[in-house]
Every structure is written in C-alpha cells, then in structure tokens.
C-alpha cells in the first residue's frame, strides 16, 4: 500500500525533518506513528499527501510512485485517501451534511451520488440525526466525526489521521479511535499520527516511532514507549 525508500526531507532553512526513512505499510494495516512534536510525523504525512516533496528518495502509494506525480495528477491521489486533522477543518458556514457533501462536490460527483453517499457516511460516524446542524453547534468529538465522515465519503482505501485526538478529551478520543478501528476492520488502511500514549498502549497495533527524523522503532504490536 505504502512504501518509502530512503526518503529524506531537508527544509530550505537547513532543518532536517526526515533522514533516510524506509517504511512499508501493507494494505489493511492500522499503524500508529508516534513521536514528539517536531519529530517529523507531520512532515511524513505531508509527504504522503504530496503537500511536500521529499528532498530525496522514493514514495509509492497504492502502486504509484508519487514522487513522479505531475501537479495535475495530485488531486486524484488525494481522492484515493481520506485525511483527518487535529483542528477538524470544517467549513463553519456549511451544515454537517453540506460539509460532507462538499468533499464529493469538488470531485464533480453527481447530485444523485451525493444524496446516496452522504447519509451513509454520516450514519457510519453516528451523526445521521445532526446532519442539519452547523459545526459550532457540535462538541469537539462530534466535529471530528464530521471530518471523518468527510474523509470516508469518497470511499478511500487509505485514511490518514494527523493527531485526530489532539483537541479532544480522553473519552471522546477513544470514540474516535474505535471508529477508526471499525473503518480498518472494513478494509481501510489507517495511518494515525499521535502522541497520545494511552491510546497507543491500549490499542496494541503496529507502532512506528520517529525521533529527530529517524525511525527509532517499528513494532508489530507495540506500545508508546519501549518500556510499555
């Protein structure tokens, strides 16, 4: 599904975010990427979304070498993956339904497809009854669920979550992670960057730990720290 070969990223100011990373993530896996802020987690995710270019190395997503992708092909790469962020990134002047529909609209989906898919996505995250509300009428956890519905509505095979629980209290965080786990069980590959120790330790999934731009640990059923 995802393969990184000797990937390095050095920013223009000389800051080295990633050093010669090698990583393979198979279809259907659930992977935590853990590390302190500034360890290189976010850079890694931006590389996968092709928001950033690696300085060197090769990144393959779904059999495609995305380092060689042309600019006009990037949107199609992004349609094949759903993305969830710490700050939800919802449009405040659109309802829950419209926020989710928006992700389909921009891919020029037909009105009929939108009418069919959006309710399915909303029921997957348990928000069918709140589709007419605006984001500010929802709790943080609910807002994150809207953004998950938006990420899933186009039926991606890969879901990338960048600190999805960063703004949520522990209880809500568990809701979100359980939901991600459900998506995973239905076949979606999940990559979740986090520094939420409890969740990582509780889930017993594969953990890739990054520190100062290096992979320092990659365990099949790991915890947040070595000792854990």
């Amino acid at each position: 599904m995802i393969e990184l070969t000797n990937v390095s990223k050095t920013f223009q100011d000389g800051h080295k975010a990633l050093n010669d990373i090698n990583m393979f993530i198979d279809r259907g896996e659930f992977v935590f990427i853990v590390g302190q802020s500034g360890s290189g987690k976010s850079t890694l995710i931006k590389l996968l979304m092709k928001e950033l270019e690696p300085t060197s190395g090769k990144i393959v997503v779904d059999g495609k070498n995305i380092t060689k992708l042309k600019r006009r092909e990037i949107p199609y790469l992004r349609r094949s993956m759903g993305v969830v962020f710490q700050d939800f990134r919802l449009l405040q002047d659109k309802t829950v339904y419209e926020n989710v529909a928006f992700a389909m609209q921009v891919t020029e989906a037909s009105a009929r497809e939108i009418r069919r898919q959006v309710p399915i996505a909303l029921s997957m995250v348990g928000l069918s009854k709140k589709s007419g509300l605006y984001p500010k009428q929802l709790s943080g956890g609910e807002q994150q669920r809207v953004s998950m519905a938006r990420a899933m509505v186009n039926g991606p095979s890969l879901l990338i979550a960048d600190e999805p629980t960063g703004n949520l209290d522990p209880e809500m965080s568990w809701d979100i992670v359980k939901m991600l786990n459900e998506f995973n069980q239905r076949g979606t590959t999940i990559i979740m960057a986090t520094h939420d120790r409890e969740i990582v330790n509780g889930m017993k999934k594969r953990v890739i730990a990054i520190e100062n731009g290096d992979i320092i640990r990659d365990e099949k059923r790991g915890g947040y720290c070595n000792e854990a």
Partner: peptide, 12 residues
C-alpha cells in the same frame, strides 16, 4: 485549503 486536500483540481 480544504478543497485542495479533499482532491479538488486547480481548475475547480
């Protein structure tokens, strides 16, 4: 920004 990460083309 949101349009771009959900896969809108530049023209869209």
């Amino acid at each position: 920004g949101i349009m771009k990460f959900v896969g809108a083309t530049d023209w869209f």
